[in-house]
């Protein structure tokens, strides 16, 4: 009798398959994720997440998180996966697992047109980046721990400060920068885009190999059936996979 009770309790504790998959994204990283005028999170990452859920035939719940706490939230089971243009890094791999990459990222330095800045010279001026991002760790390496590196809770906030002239340049991810430059013709990419071999993947908990494998299969699926290309072309005019 006791044994049956324990078994029942265990059954109740393990999540039923019908439960929606909880996916975290950010909401301040246009065009990958942003909040629209109706207060909904929209963007490339959200569309990809939804396509993956459709492929896996699972219901999905999209949760907007702040970037700073997005990995701790996953580890602590607030959601099951992060689809938020997250770079696959060795540091993060110690805490979470990643799927195969779903696109490649580059970094760029953005500054006002005609600023005369160079990528090598960023240590000499005020440079911005998003806190806890691949951009900020790259920038930190360049300017050193005591350089004038300003960290922002969102990429959007760093764009705003660049526009206002509070900082001379920012280190940003490539595609959001292109998207922003469309409405800000006074600014430009300084030099070439910076290839740091950055691959973007979906993060899952370390003990959740099952979900990781399912997502990988689904990812292959949406690339093969053209869904991915369609979504990508809608945002970037090209397939970024």
């Amino acid at each position: 009798m006791t044994k049956t009770l324990i078994a029942l309790a265990l059954l109740a504790a393990s999540p039923a398959a019908a439960e929606p998959l909880r996916i975290a994204t950010e909401g301040a990283f246009p065009p990958f994720s942003e909040i629209n005028a109706n207060g909904e999170v929209v963007g490339f990452d959200i569309d990809i997440a939804k396509a993956l859920c459709a492929k896996m035939e699972r219901e999905c719940e999209i949760i907007a998180m702040d970037w700073d706490g997005i990995i701790p939230g996953l580890v602590n089971d607030k959601y099951d996966a992060i689809v938020a243009s997250m770079s696959i890094t060795e540091e993060r791999k110690q805490t979470v697992d990643f799927t195969n990459p779903y696109y490649s990222n580059y970094l760029v330095l953005l500054a006002k047109k005609g600023s005369g800045l160079t990528v090598d010279g960023i240590a000499q001026q005020a440079v911005g980046a998003q806190r806890a991002s691949i951009s900020s760790s790259w920038a930190e390496e360049q300017v050193g721990a005591r350089g004038d590196l300003r960290l922002y809770d969102t990429l959007t906030a760093s764009f705003t400060d660049l526009e206002a002239g509070r900082i001379d340049s920012i280190v940003s991810d490539y595609f959001p920068a292109l998207d922003w430059l469309k409405d800000h013709p006074d600014f430009e990419v300084v030099g070439d885009r910076i290839d740091i071999g950055d691959q973007i993947g979906i993060a899952v908990r370390k003990d959740d190999a099952e979900l990781r494998d399912a997502l990988n299969v689904a990812l292959e699926g949406i690339v093969a059936d053209g869904t991915y290309g369609q979504i990508s072309t809608g945002y970037f005019g090209t397939d970024i996979h």
Binding site: D68, V75, S136, S137, L151
Partner: peptide
């Protein structure tokens, strides 16, 4: 620290971002 100042809290949050 929420307006880019690197005070004790700002530095702490930066360090936290490296290893959680």
């Amino acid at each position: 620290s929420t307006i880019t100042v690197m005070d004790l809290m700002g530095q702490t949050r930066s360090v936290f971002a490296r290893g959680y």
